[in-house]
Amino acid sequence: MTVGASAGAPAVPTIPGIDEALQARVVDAMEAVAARLSEVVDHEDPFIAEASGHLAAAGGKRFRPLLTVLASEVGGGWNEQVVDAAVGVELTHLASLYHDDVMDEADLRRGVTSANARYGNSTAILVGDLLFGTASSVVAGLGAEAVRIQADTFVRLCAGQIRDDRQAALGAEAAVLAGDADDDGAVAAYLQILADKTGALIATAARYGAMFGGCDEATVRALTAFGEKLGVVFQLADDLLDVSSDTSGKPAGADLREGKATLPVLYARTSTDPADARLVELTRRPVEGADELEEALRLLRAHPAMDQARRHTSRLADEARALLDEVGDGPAVEALRSLVDGVAERSV
Rank of each mutant, 00 (worst) to 15 (best):
A34R: 01
D107L: 14
A71L: 08
A115F: 04
D42S: 15
V27E: 15
L108T: 13
A144V: 12
L300I: 02
R311P: 01
V40I: 07
D107P: 05
E228A: 12
E319F: 07
F212K: 00
G179D: 03
A320F: 02
G143I: 05
H54N: 08
T14D: 14
Y190F: 14
I18P: 03
A252R: 03
A222D: 03
G76C: 10
L316T: 01
A51T: 10
E73I: 06
R221K: 12
L130Y: 15
T283M: 03
A9W: 13
A115Y: 01
A309Q: 06
S347L: 09
R156A: 13
C215V: 09
E217T: 15
G328V: 06
L194Q: 01
E281Q: 12
L339G: 02
A5I: 09
A205N: 05
E288Q: 14
S248P: 08
E44H: 13
A237I: 04
V265D: 00
S314I: 11
D45I: 11
A254Q: 13
L194D: 00
S347W: 02
V69N: 01
L97D: 03
L22I: 10
E326P: 05
E105P: 04
T224F: 04
D182E: 13
D104G: 04
S347H: 04
K250R: 15
L22D: 06
A302G: 15
G128T: 09
E145C: 08
F132D: 00
R285H: 10
V33P: 00
D28Y: 08
A135T: 06
E90P: 01
G185C: 06
G171M: 05
E173T: 07
G171D: 02
A85C: 07
A135W: 02
A115N: 04
D239G: 01
A320L: 05
V26P: 03
A186E: 01
E258T: 07
D325V: 07
R298V: 07
G128H: 02
H303P: 01
D101P: 05
G171Q: 04
S136F: 14
S338G: 15
G171A: 07
C158W: 06
D291L: 12
V27G: 13
D239F: 00
A195T: 10
V243R: 00
L55W: 06
L97N: 04
L300D: 00
S137K: 15
F226S: 01
L108S: 12
L126F: 13
A335Q: 04
L130A: 09
V243Y: 00
A210E: 01
L108V: 12
L37Q: 03
A71Q: 03
A159H: 08
D329Q: 15
G213N: 02
Q23I: 10
E44M: 13
D255N: 07
L256F: 05
D28M: 11
A140Y: 06
R62T: 06
S245W: 05
L22K: 07
A261D: 04
A268V: 06
P13Y: 11
L324W: 02
G59A: 11
A189P: 00
V74H: 03
H99W: 07
A117E: 12
V340D: 00
V327A: 04
R64M: 08
P264A: 09
D325R: 11
